[in-house]
Design a protein around this nucleic acid. Structure first.
Length: 832
RNA sequence: GCCGGGUUGGCGGAAUCGGUAGACGCGAUGGUCUCAAACACCAUUGUUCGAAAGGACAUGUGGGUUCAAGUCCCACACCCGGCACCA
């Protein structure tokens, strides 16, 4: 039995009135469905605002995490509605992806069945949760009407040279039987299923994100302050810019020199050997015939090792001599060339100059293979480590032409680069950690890549007016992973005439990463049903960039980086007049339980639907919002939905106690209560702008307490100020507890919807206090409090303070040396 | 290791301009109501000394600046998150 169903019982002399939450929810849902108060207008009559929640993946019903994000985002949306903006608050589903496919295999169904059932379930839950969506915007990325335009985007990037195919060693998830983007490999494991990722040599499609590396970095300056710092930091780390030099090393038996990237060109004199990534083509190329067998054995070993093992802590260095030598351009000395797995094939040039004196990894390798170590930076006296990577003066660094001995690291770097450039053996350069975005997937439930492979014409893009390339009708076992895309088995679908020559050709059988779908969906929302174009340039100009984006921090790198890339690419192609998609970002924390993330395996899950059934939508939303600052994790075990329910009932009771008529002007109302009301309005406005929603709730609670007191023991229920307070509570509360707010609004004699009642304006005269508390300190310790007028002058305040008996006692017989007066707030007496 | 963020009552958190630390809520304790319990409502609630008046101590630790520090500066400890054989 929950509080929802408390009936007034005759045995109680005066039972507290409570309301039937379930009936109230049902009542207003019907009314709102008719009123459709959150439908976007877009007629230019009002200023526009675009609020976007990261759209959900339809993995079942909504869970606690959804409950939190959407409640938080709705505060902002509803605040904007109250302010009279024309708000775009769309809804949709990121509905392509692996779980649907895995469910379909298990059940022998089409992935669409599971997907669209879940979407319907979530849609109904959203509706009941009272989120202020404009339902007419609804889209699903798995609809052909949507993925048609995802394919269009692919083709535009292809035309611009930003989508290309290459063969390289890629991350392979043996469990999901598909390749993964770099961003989807976490700690050497598949982000989705946790399997150890291995490498495979495959020809795959990529988007050229690296072309934008510098801009992705630079444009973050404009987001500082509007995006959380840690998100910007994560992106910066991910892009990983480093400054250094390319240096060319002649290698015996080879015409072309081998170039390496180094961030420490100043240590070039200390380079005593040379290492090539074992799995880079260069290693095989350089290998001398005599070392071929040894190299082949080693490479086989490396290929077998997963990333998890490869990166494990304290693993000793391995490698194999390739039987050739490189020449150090500074010292002329011969450096043996090794293949090793501690050098990465796809970072820099896949080859390094090894400077064991200044790099611990090189030091470890040198010790393992008994190679010479030369220090080129003087460590401090006290230094006891091995490789020295700190600041110091250059040593052992001169030849006939260049002498950098005695220079600091920075000076030595620039001198060396200048020398390399002058002699044509190297140049200063910038290198990025960021790799191109691998977008091919060997799975079914995603947008087919709109390319045809023709034996004569090569890769030919599908004409834009031939889109969408619709998925063939596969289901159940047809979808089981077999290492090649399930699309390949749809033989009729694959066969297609070449768009160029008309000859027999084959469709590309891979689908796109689902992150492609979500990299542009925010552009679709202003015109979600346009069947002539992906997005309307003019509508996007009106609405975008998104004013406020809300979602989980787990997308801090992947989705946000990809969206930023796509925005910049479309900008360069002339479609967009902005370069950053999301002007402001709020990342909400995780909902946990008893200190841990909720999960089935831990058995600590809390079901959103059950909580709502028990306490009602408003109490749950309020609990989420009141729990703490939006970006902090919240722990359900620390919270009290029962307390939230108690509060909404208390607020509701207020609306029933008001006896003045609707429309009563508050002017003659009780001034003390009016002051509290208007201070609440002023503070709430500021707090919402600062995203401190939890404090807004606290302030409304205070206002409710004040109004309660006024009714019971103050000015009484008929005072106009009580009505003003109750109406203010209803409006502010409508951002968090829409059902209670609507019910209050109705009981106060108004027509729905309270959501559009209009944000109240604080009256300045009611914000000034006529009495303030002045703190009197002696030696910085509070000894007295005085009620004074806010415009009291300093001499009188000082006089009052020094006359206070507690102050006199605290001063005692000590001489007063100084009195600091900051009227009207504080007086501090310095003695002794 | 590098980068970012944090550490405030029994708990979640306020105090974002250097000026009353602990708003608001949870929990707890006492009371009202009840045969009783639950619910609800009222009161108290940082620790400590004191009968009280009043005092002392308190924002991770140690220093510093200041009339005044949770807030500013320096060092340290611990926690959380990200990146990491990235040359």
């Amino acid at each position: 039995m929950s509080a929802l169903h408390d009936e007034p019982q005759s045995t109680y002399p005066e039972p507290r009135a409570t309301y039937d939450i379930e009936a109230t929810q049902e009542k207003w849902l019907k009314v709102w469905a008719d009123l459709d108060p959150f439908k976007v207008v877009d007629d230019g009559s009002r200023e526009r605002r675009y609020l976007l929640d990261m759209f959900p993946y339809p993995s079942g019903d909504l869970h606690m995490g959804h409950g939190e994000v959407f409640a938080l985002a709705d505060v902002i949306a509803r605040y904007w509605f109250q302010q009279g903006y024309d708000v775009l608050h769309p809804v949709g589903w990121d509905s392509f992806g692996l779980p649907a496919e895995n469910a379909a295999i298990k059940r022998g169904e089409h992935p669409a069945t599971w997907t669209y059932q879940n979407i319907e379930t979530q849609a109904e839950s959203f509706r009941r949760y009272g989120i202020s969506f404009d339902w007419s915007t609804r889209l699903h990325t798995s609809d052909p009407e949507y993925y048609r335009w995802t394919q269009w985007l692919f083709l535009r990037l292809y035309d611009a040279g930003l989508a290309y195919r290459k063969s390289s060693a890629v991350n392979w998830c043996p469990n999901d039987q598909t390749v993964l983007a770099n961003e989807q490999v976490v700690g050497g494991r598949c982000e989705r299923c946790g399997a150890d990722v291995t490498k495979r040599e495959l020809t795959q499609w990529y988007f050229k994100v690296t072309d934008f590396a510098q801009r992705l970095l630079d444009d973050m300056d404009s987001l500082t302050g509007s995006w959380p710092d840690h998100v910007l930091t994560m992106q910066r780390n991910w892009i990983g810019r480093s400054e250094g030099a390319h240096v060319d090393f002649p290698v015996e038996g080879r015409d072309q020199p081998v170039t390496v990237f180094t961030t420490r060109p100043d240590t070039l004199f200390g380079a005593t050997f040379f290492v090539v990534a074992a799995d880079a083509p260069l290693a095989a190329e350089l290998c001398a015939p005599g070392q071929q067998d040894a190299f082949d054995d080693y490479l086989r070993e490396v290929r077998r090792t997963t990333d998890v093992d490869r990166m494990s802590e304290g693993r000793h260095k391995t490698g194999v001599f390739l039987g050739v030598h490189a020449t150090n351009p500074m010292t002329g000395s011969q450096m043996p060339v090794f293949a090793a797995d501690y050098v990465l094939a796809d970072y820099g040039t896949g080859a390094i100059m090894a400077v064991p004196g200044q790099d611990q990894r090189d030091w470890d390798f040198a010790r393992a293979f008994d190679l010479p170590i030369v220090r080129t930076v003087q460590p401090p006296e006290s230094f006891e480590g091995e490789a020295f990577t700190g600041e110091g003066r250059a040593i052992n660094s001169s030849n006939g032409d260049l002498d950098i001995n005695g220079l600091t690291v920075a000076e030595a770097k620039s001198r060396t680069i200048a020398y390399l450039e002058a002699t044509g053996t190297g140049r200063g350069t910038i290198n990025f950690r960021l790799r191109d975005w691998l977008v091919s997937r060997q799975r079914f439930w995603g947008p087919p890549i709109p390319i045809v492979h023709c034996p004569d014409c090569g890769e030919v893009p599908v004409a834009s007016d031939e889109l969408p390339v619709v998925l063939p009708d596969l289901k159940g076992a047809d979808l089981a992973p077999k290492g090649v895309s399930p699309l390949a088995s749809a033989t009729e679908w694959v066969k297609v005439p070449c768009p160029k020559c008309g000859g027999a050709a084959r469709r590309d059988t891979d689908t796109m990463d689902t992150f492609v779908d979500s990299s542009w969906y925010f552009l679709r929302y202003p015109t979600p049903h346009d069947d002539t174009q992906a997005f309307d340039v003019e509508a996007v100009r009106r609405w975008c960039p998104v004013d406020h984006y809300v979602g989980g921090v787990e997308h801090a790198i992947l989705h946000l980086l990809y969206s930023r890339f796509v925005t910049k690419a479309l900008h360069d192609l002339g479609y967009l007049d902005f370069v950053e998609p999301f002007s402001r970002l709020m990342t909400q924390g995780e909902v946990r339980n008893q200190g841990k993330g909720m999960s089935k395996s831990l058995g600590n899950g809390v079901d959103l639907g059950e909580q709502i059934a028990k306490f009602g939508v408003d109490a749950i939303r309020l609990t989420m919002v009141f729990a703490g600052p939006p970006e902090e994790d919240i722990d359900w075990a620390d919270l009290s939905p029962a307390g939230s329910l108690r509060f909404v009932q208390r607020a509701w009771r207020l609306s029933g106690d008001v006896t003045s008529a609707p429309g009563t002007l508050p002017d003659d109302g009780d001034v003390e209560l009016r002051k509290i009301t208007h201070r609440t309005i002023a503070e709430a406005t500021q707090l919402i702008e600062g995203l401190r929603f939890n404090v807004v709730v606290a302030r409304v609670m205070e206002l409710v307490n004040a109004a309660r007191k006024a009714i019971d023991t103050g000015c009484g229920p008929g005072d106009p100020a009580v009505r003003e307070a109750a109406e203010t509570v209803a409006i502010i509360l409508s951002l968090v507890a829409p059902f209670t707010a609507e019910e209050m609004w109705s009981r106060l004699g108004h027509e729905p919807a309270v959501a559009k009642a209009g944000w109240p304006t604080a009256i300045d005269e009611l914000l000034v206090r006529d009495v303030v508390t002045c703190v009197v300190q002696v030696q910085g310790k509070v000894r007295a409090k005085l009620d004074v007028s806010p415009d009291i002058d300093e001499p009188s305040l000082q006089g009052l303070a020094l006359a206070d008996p507690n102050v006199i006692r605290a001063i005692g017989s000590s001489p007063v040396r100084k009195v600091i007066v900051r009227a009207p707030k504080v007086v501090n007496v310095v003695i002794g």
